[in-house]
C-alpha cells in the first residue's frame, strides 16, 4: 500500500502540465497497491490552484504558502517537501523533472534520508513492489531500478506519460512549514534574448552534432544542404558548448524547440535534451555512423553511414534535381 505524494510546480500562475503527467503515474501506483494519492502545492496566493488540483488527480492537497516559496528556491522547497511527507505519511514522492524539480528533488531526498531515482520515464507497481525505469548513458541504455528502503523520492521525465484527465476527491489542508534562514535567494528570471537565428519559422532544418567533426565542416557540409533545401542550419548542445556555433543555433530543451516539416539530424546521437527539442517535427531523417544511436528511435528514415560522405552527395543530387 503506497501513499504517493505529488510535488507540484506552478509556472506563470498555473500548475504545469507535468503535474498532471505525474498524477497519471501516482493514480496508477495508488490503484495497484490499494494506496492513496496526496499532493503538495507550494507558492504564495495559490490556494485556488490547490483546490483545483485536489479535484483533478491530486487527492488530498497540502498547501504550503510563504514568501520564500513564491519563486523557485531549492532550500525552501526541500523543507516544505519534508514537512508534507511527515504530514502525509508518504512513502513515495513524485516530482516533475523540470529545472526546478531537478534542483530540489535530490536535496529533499537527502533531507528525508530517502532513496532517489532520477528522471524516470516509467514507474510501475506490480506484486507489491515498485519498479522504476530511466535512461542512462545519455539515452543509449535503459536501467530498471528497485528500492530497498521505506521512502523513495523519484523525479519523472516530462512528456513521458499522458496527463491525468480523470477526477479525484480530496480536501485542501494548510501546511505549516518552518523555513527559517535561507542561504539561497531568488533574484529574477531573465528571459532569453531575442534570437539572431529563428529556427521556428524554417520548413526544413538541417542540424549537425559532434559527429560533424569540426566547426569548418558545418559551413562546408551542413549549411550547403540547408541552403539546397531552402532551410536553416541547427546544432546540438555539444557543438555549441565546444564553441563551434553560437547558442542561437542550438536545438533542444535549453535551446530552441522546433517543429519543421523536415528535420535532418547529421551526426547527432540523440541525447534526451536534443530529442525534446525536435521530436515533434513532421518528418525526421537521421544520418549517423552508430546504428544504436537513440536518434534512430525518433527518426522516420535513417541512414547508418558517415555523414561526410552522404551529406555532400545529397546536396549535389538535390541541386541537380532542382535543375
Amino acid at each position: 500500500m503506497s501513499t504517493v505524494l505529488i510535488v507540484t510546480e506552478i509556472q506563470n500562475g498555473s500548475l504545469r502540465e507535468a503535474c498532471y503527467e505525474v498524477a497519471s503515474l501516482a493514480q496508477q501506483i495508488a490503484a495497484a497497491t490499494g494506496g492513496s494519492v496526496k499532493s503538495l502545492v507550494m507558492g504564495q496566493g495559490v490556494a485556488a490552484l490547490a483546490d483545483e488540483f485536489s479535484k483533478k488527480g491530486g487527492g488530498d492537497v497540502f498547501l504550503a504558502e510563504g514568501d520564500a516559496l513564491a519563486n523557485h528556491n531549492a532550500e525552501a522547497e526541500s523543507k516544505a517537501i519534508v514537512a508534507a511527507v511527515e504530514a502525509s505519511g508518504a512513502d513515495l514522492v513524485l516530482i516533475p523533472s523540470t529545472p526546478s524539480g531537478w534542483d530540489t528533488a535530490p536535496r529533499a531526498a537527502a533531507a528525508l534520508d530517502a532513496g532517489f531515482v532520477s528522471e524516470c520515464f516509467d514507474i510501475t507497481a506490480e506484486g507489491g513492489s515498485i519498479t522504476y525505469k530511466r535512461r542512462v548513458f545519455n539515452g543509449k541504455l535503459e536501467a530498471t531500478i528497485s528500492a530497498s528502503c521505506d521512502k523513495v523520492v523519484a523525479s519523472v521525465q516530462t512528456g513521458a506519460t499522458t496527463p491525468f484527465e480523470g477526477s479525484s476527491e480530496g480536501s485542501v489542508r494548510k501546511l505549516d512549514v518552518s523555513i527559517g534562514d535561507l542561504g539561497t535567494k531568488f533574484v529574477e528570471v531573465k528571459q532569453a534574448e531575442s534570437k539572431g537565428v529563428d529556427l521556428s519559422k524554417a520548413d526544413v532544418i538541417v542540424s549537425g552534432g559532434r559527429g560533424v567533426g569540426t566547426p569548418e565542416k558545418f559551413l562546408e557540409v551542413i549549411q550547403p544542404l540547408a541552403d539546397a533545401l531552402g532551410g536553416a542550419m541547427g546544432a546540438s548542445r555539444p557543438v555549441v558548448d565546444a564553441g563551434w556555433l553560437p547558442h542561437e543555433y542550438q536545438v533542444g530543451s535549453s535551446g530552441q524547440v522546433v517543429q519543421p516539416k523536415l528535420y535532418i539530424a547529421c551526426g547527432i546521437s540523440g541525447a534526451i535534451q536534443h530529442l525534446v527539442g525536435m521530436k515533434t517535427s513532421n518528418y525526421i531523417i537521421a544520418i549517423n555512423k552508430d546504428p544504436d544511436a537513440p536518434i534512430f528511435e525518433v527518426a522516420n528514415l535513417g541512414v547508418v553511414a558517415d555523414l561526410l560522405e552522404i551529406v555532400p552527395a545529397l546536396t549535389e543530387a538535390l541541386t541537380a534535381a532542382k535543375g
Binding site: 530517502a114 532513496g115 532517489f116 531515482v117 519498479t131 522504476y132 535512461r135 542512462v136 539515452g139 543509449k140 541504455l141 535503459e142 536501467a143 530498471t144 531500478i145 528497485s146 528500492a147 530497498s148 528502503c149 523513495v152 525526421i284 537521421a286 546504428p291 544504436d292 537513440p294 534512430f296 528511435e297 527518426a299 522516420n300 528514415l301 535513417g302 541512414v303 547508418v304
Partner: peptide, 18 residues
C-alpha cells in the same frame, strides 16, 4: 537504498526505416 537490477539497450519501438 536504490540499485540497478537490469540494464539494457532501449526496446526498439517504432524505429526508423533504414
Amino acid at each position: 537504498k536504490v540499485k540497478i537490477d537490469r540494464i539494457a539497450p532501449p526496446l526498439k519501438g517504432d524505429t526508423a526505416e533504414i
